[in-house]
């Protein structure tokens, strides 16, 4: 039996069915090239009044506001808010550390599943989905488009990609921020195992570019709790360094340090109005996506 490819490799039919009812909304104004459900910075044809502008040649006379003409004896046309589609860029970390999994699922696999789920939700809403894959550099880029074929191709590319090398998250994120010109929804799926201050700077870069940013901090539960039962020699998956340690003795101090590490991201994301979420690989993906999108929808109203 041939190996499944594309979206069917990540999501089952019943999962797709359930995900189809969900929406991923941007909390900010976004710039798209198609009419859609999201607010656009451009004036358009929605029923939402924006402002008045002096009539110019070529304007459709039906847009003249006759009440204003009656008061001012000048021609003004009414302008309405434009509604556009959403561009969503999935930025996925493909560094070696992302390929760690204490159970059967690695963080990268989880990230791919998450990307598939979000991509499906986005495309279902007729929004565009794009992809950046990075490790120490941008390894792959897929421009945003809003078809299921595009999504399928994007996921096939993700599926076929080999693990990268070391992580240079901050550098890569800066590069990505520069390359995404229009306002978009940026979903960063990474373990963020780099210098938090630099990563936070990169995140602020996205915000400066008026992007709505979601950080899915993907972590394995073992990385958080260090609940190994026996002592062993740990080998760094990126650098190859080793250290012999008794996890039971170290666990308390380890957790304290790790909590500080998480807190740095959590506090700076709050300050930058970035949606910061911890995606644990032992959490059922469908539950995570459903809970998160429902919560986001409530907050967007």
């Amino acid at each position: 039996m041939p190996e499944k490819q594309g979206i069917s490799a990540f999501l089952k039919a019943e999962e797709l069915h359930k995900l189809g009812r969900l929406v991923l909304l941007s909390r900010y104004v976004v710039e798209g090239n198609l009419a859609g459900a999201h607010r656009s910075p451009n004036k358009g044809a929605s029923s939402e009044f924006a402002d008045h502008r002096a009539y110019m040649e070529g304007d459709d006379p039906k847009h003249i506001d006759w009440k204003v003409f009656g008061r001012t004896d000048r021609y003004y046309v009414k302008r309405f808010e434009d509604e556009t589609n959403l561009r969503v860029y999935l930025i996925i970390d493909n560094s070696n550390s992302m390929h760690y999994g204490s159970d059967t699922t690695t963080k990268f696999q989880y990230a791919c599943h998450l990307a598939a789920a979000l991509g499906y939700v986005v495309v279902k809403m007729r929004d565009s989905i794009g992809l950046y894959l990075f490790s120490d550099k941008i390894e792959a880029k897929v421009n945003a488009a809003n078809s299921f074929n595009h999504l399928n191709n994007l996921l096939i590319q993700l599926q076929e990609h080999k693990p990268g090398k070391e992580t240079k998250i901050a550098e890569s994120l800066h590069m990505i921020a520069e390359s995404v010109r229009k306002r978009a929804l940026i979903v960063i799926i990474s373990d963020l195992f780099d210098e938090p201050s630099e990563i936070n700077l990169a995140l602020s870069h996205f915000r400066k570019m008026h992007h709505d940013v979601i950080v899915c901090h993907t972590l394995d539960p073992m990385e958080m709790d260090l609940s190994f039962r026996r002592g062993c020699e740990f080998m760094d998956m990126e650098t190859g360094e080793t250290i012999s340690a008794d996890p039971r003795s170290l666990a308390r101090d380890y957790q304290k340090i790790f909590q500080e590490f998480l807190e740095k991201y959590r506090s700076s994301c709050r300050a930058m109005n970035i949606d910061y979420r911890i995606a644990r690989t032992d959490t059922h993906l469908e539950d995570f996506v459903r809970a998160y999108l429902e919560e986001r929808r409530r907050l967007s109203k």
Binding site: M98, Y100, F193, C232, E233, F234, L250
Partner: peptide, 22 residues
């Protein structure tokens, strides 16, 4: 200590810090 198993781990930077402390 001889029978120690090698365990690949995503990063040992936190382990190093923890060991230094304790």
């Amino acid at each position: 200590s001889r029978r120690t198993v090698k365990m690949p781990f995503s990063t040992i930077r936190f382990l190093k810090l923890a060991e230094k402390q304790s």
